[in-house]
């Protein structure tokens, strides 16, 4: 159990529009759903209706892509107010977003842009995480991003940065093991070192996903099955963290719900600590 007492929700699936009809119609045996916050904050239409229906039957976690926690623009409190209201309306178990920035000068690039890992950005981000957690009245859960560049101004590793950020701002962590794998390929580090360095008691949730390997680099596309190396990292993470809420993201070329759910359920094999150790 993590230090925040956020429960292990089991194995969940990302709530996606193409599956709305299936989910409402068949009420599949899924432990929980993760909804992309921004898709439901400014709509009174069908997406919001479906989310509220789903929330009546399944635990919901909100996962954002536009908080821009590392951005240097002022925090957007209009966004935060809407996020808080949405979280209350669906009884979100926790709220997560990425260690990144999404735009400056009032613009949104709609990408998870990477941070330099140094003292300045650590101080800046930790301060903002604290403000956001206070405002939302729940510890923000921060996810490690996948990235394609490294900055000359970085003075620490991403895993050290995350560990320091968690300590300084008292936030939770969403450990995306696919992102660790993608970044390790792109930047040439050992992903096992990353997993081993993460403070286990901070990890509230784990993400799994597929990606596209272009030979010279990997893009985090969420459009395929999880590869064996990422499952192996997941096993290693489970061995350190114990049973932890786990979610499969599939955002492009999305197959039918049963295929996505079956892929997510492969995680069951790694959730027993003994099995996980064997898999490492």
């Amino acid at each position: 159990m993590n230090r925040f007492n956020f429960p292990d929700l089991g194995i969940g699936v990302g709530l996606r529009t193409v599956h709305f009809k299936h989910i409402l119609g068949t009420q599949p045996d899924v432990d929980w759903f993760e909804a992309l916050s921004e898709n439901y904050m400014d709509t009174g239409g069908r997406p919001r209706f479906v989310l509220e229906k789903v929330a009546e039957q399944y635990p919901i976690v909100l996962h954002g892509v536009s908080l821009s926690i590392g951005g240097t623009d002022p925090l957007d409190f209009d966004y935060l107010r809407k996020l808080k209201a949405l979280a209350r309306s669906v009884n979100a178990r926790w709220i997560s977003d990425h260690l990144c920035w999404t735009g400056v000068s009032g613009r949104n690039v709609h990408d998870l842009l990477p941070m330099p890992y140094n003292a300045e950005s650590l101080r800046h981000t930790a301060e903002r995480v604290k403000i956001v957690s206070d405002f939302l009245e729940t510890p923000l859960v921060v996810e490690n991003p996948s990235s394609y560049v490294e900055f000359t101004t970085s003075t620490m590793t991403e895993w050290d940065f995350l560990a320091e950020l968690a300590k300084e701002s008292d936030c939770g962590l969403l450990l995306d093991v696919n992102n660790i794998y993608v970044s390790s390929f792109n930047h040439g580090f050992d992903p096992k070192v990353y997993v081993d360095a993460i403070p286990a008691d901070r990890v509230v949730q784990v993400h799994l996903a597929g990606h596209q390997n272009h030979g010279t680099h990997i893009i985090d596309t969420h459009n395929d099955f999880v590869i064996d190396e990422v499952w192996s990292l997941y096993g290693r993470a489970c061995a350190r963290i114990g049973d932890v809420s786990t979610l499969l993201e599939w955002d492009a070329d999305i197959p039918d719900f049963e295929t996505v759910h079956a892929e997510a359920k492969k995680a069951e094999a790694f959730r027993s600590v003994e099995v996980a150790y064997a898999a490492v």
Partner: peptide, 10 residues
């Protein structure tokens, strides 16, 4: 008209 919102909707 670059995006100035947290959502793509508008």
């Amino acid at each position: 008209h670059p995006s100035r919102s947290y959502t793509f909707n508008r």
